[in-house]
Amino acid sequence: MQTALFIEQILNGLQLGVMLFLMAAGLTLIFGVMGLINLAHGSLYMVGAFACAAVAAATGSFWLGLAASLAAAAAAGAIMEILVIRRLYERDHLDQVLATFALILIFSEGTRWLFGSFPLYLDIPKLLQGTVPIPGGSRYQLYRLAIIGVGVAVAVGLFLLISKTRLGMRIRAGESDREMIGALGVDIRTLYTVVFALGAALAGLAGAMVGALQSVQVGMGEPVLILAFVVIVIGGIGSIKGALVGALLVGLVDTMGRFLLPQLFGMLMPPSQAGLVGGALASMLIYIVMAFVLAMRPQGLFPAAKG
């Protein structure tokens, strides 16, 4: 049973990692292409979760809710970029932080006004209910495996988009020299809106899928946003590969730390103290990893190549 529990925690870490990747991929694209610090990215995660929950409740279909989450988050991101964000590109990072923090408050209060202060709940679709056997004699939730599968599929899709398509070529060029591609006739404003909407849709997808595992409530995106920033710092700003590796590393370190550290300290002290000390250290572990990576590689593990 201990083997099964260990494998289950590894799968939990992978599931957390791919969810963080969906958040961090959009965030790192936005920062890499636009040089913009977007604190409101977590609000787009919340928008996706609420859109999915509301549509699923109205129609009885999780899949329609999932489609609505992508559409609502992408639309919210595009509107945000057109009305507010594009006025911030030439401003310093402090202005960007203040403006996007204001957007967090606007999204939170607007969501509370629309849906109220009580949380919403999403049911796991029937197709993905149930469990599957894992080594060690235990079983693991099928829906969590599906989240891992979706994360892998999105990672492959983003890699193909960035490396094999004309849009990807423009995104990579925008990361290297935005003035040059503007001079070559590429509509920079449209490119920025598309990238922002793509990043918003990924955040909305993450919120919708995680919404079936926890309650959907106002402010749910902010704790995840902090972890997403840790991911892109570890992986390298502007790098999709770095976002994937950083997200999996953070997910596994956080999950396994919370699982193993109390047990390790239990060998040295009473169980009550071991749980307290181990839990406190586990909550700091990903930040310790981030500090170590920054000390060794200040640009992150896989920084985006610049022209």
Rank of each mutant, 00 (worst) to 15 (best):
G137E: 02
A54G: 00
G137D: 03
I104Y: 01
E90V: 00
I147W: 00
M80A: 15
A49Q: 02
L66W: 11
H41D: 13
L145W: 05
S43I: 04
W113F: 13
L145M: 13
I82Y: 14
L128P: 01
N38Y: 05
G42L: 06
G137L: 06
A56P: 01
I79K: 08
R144C: 02
G130E: 08
A76M: 05
L98Y: 06
V33N: 09
V55R: 15
A78W: 15
P125M: 07
C52I: 06
A75M: 08
F107E: 04
D92I: 01
P135Q: 10
L64Q: 11
W113M: 14
D92G: 13
R87K: 11
L105W: 05
L64R: 11
L94P: 00
L103I: 07
C52E: 13
A68Q: 02
G110P: 00
G60Y: 07
A67N: 01
V55N: 08
F107P: 05
I85T: 15
V132A: 00
H93M: 08
P133A: 10
A53V: 11
S61C: 07
A73D: 10
L114D: 02
I37R: 01
F101L: 13
G35Q: 03
G35Y: 02
A68W: 03
A56M: 04
Q129A: 04
Y121M: 13
L70D: 12
A102L: 10
T59S: 15
F50C: 10
A71E: 07
L36C: 03
K126S: 14
G65A: 04
L66K: 10
Q129E: 04
L128N: 05
Y45D: 12
I124Q: 06
T111I: 15
R86G: 04
G65Y: 05
A56V: 09
A53S: 10
A102P: 05
F101T: 11
Y140S: 02
A68T: 01
A99R: 11
I79V: 15
P135W: 04
G130S: 12
V97E: 00
T111V: 10
A54W: 09
N38S: 10
V97R: 02
S117Y: 11
V84A: 11
P119L: 05
